[in-house]
């Protein structure tokens, strides 16, 4: 695959040349996303693509972001460091980035789903929530 994406400006001598280096893996990933979206609409089957499992150069990221774009939802989770869950401009396609407590990438996924699971409240947490609420209510009642 060519190093220069058609929409890319010619890098100046001082520009970061590396951001124009691509392995050519963006295109197969995007086709996989398309296939997954078809499956989601047809059967409701959700899919997850692990971006850490594919060699990606800065140029590939650029292509991926250009094609998928930025959508309506952007949630920031604070769970052992931040996680960013963004819907892309292609509804149904989400970017899920897990960062650690120093803000470094832990893992990156593309999820093709109506709702990424990590956004939902987990049952165990809700159970613990009920316990906490009951405790706090008890404390409130005791004060009266």
């Amino acid at each position: 695959m060519d190093c220069n994406h058609p929409s890319a400006k010619k890098p100046s001598a001082t520009a970061d040349v590396l951001s124009f280096v691509a392995t050519g893996n963006a295109s197969p990933v995007l086709h996989e996303v398309k296939h997954a979206l078809i499956q989601l609409l047809k059967t409701g089957a959700e899919s997850v693509i692990d971006l850490g499992a594919i060699p990606f150069a800065p140029g590939d990221d650029r292509v991926l972001n250009e094609i998928l774009g930025i959508g309506e939802v952007h949630a920031t989770l604070t769970v052992m460091g931040e996680s960013h869950v963004r819907e892309t401009a292609i509804p149904g396609v989400w970017c899920v980035d897990h960062l650690d407590e120093n803000g470094e990438y832990q893992s990156r996924f593309i999820e093709v789903t109506y709702m990424p699971n990590i956004l939902k409240t987990q049952r165990e947490d809700a159970e613990r929530g009920l316990e906490t609420l009951a405790e706090r209510l008890g404390a409130l009642d005791d004060r009266r």
Partner: peptide, 29 residues
């Protein structure tokens, strides 16, 4: 994790990152 106040959601994030780290398919989470 529970005693350290780590949520289930954090455990899921941990499992997702760990699965990626082990170079396993996300379906294995």
């Amino acid at each position: 994790m529970k005693t350290h106040g780590v949520s289930r959601r954090a455990f899921l994030k941990y499992c997702a990152s760990l699965t990626s780290l082990m170079a396993l398919s996300p379906a294995m989470v």
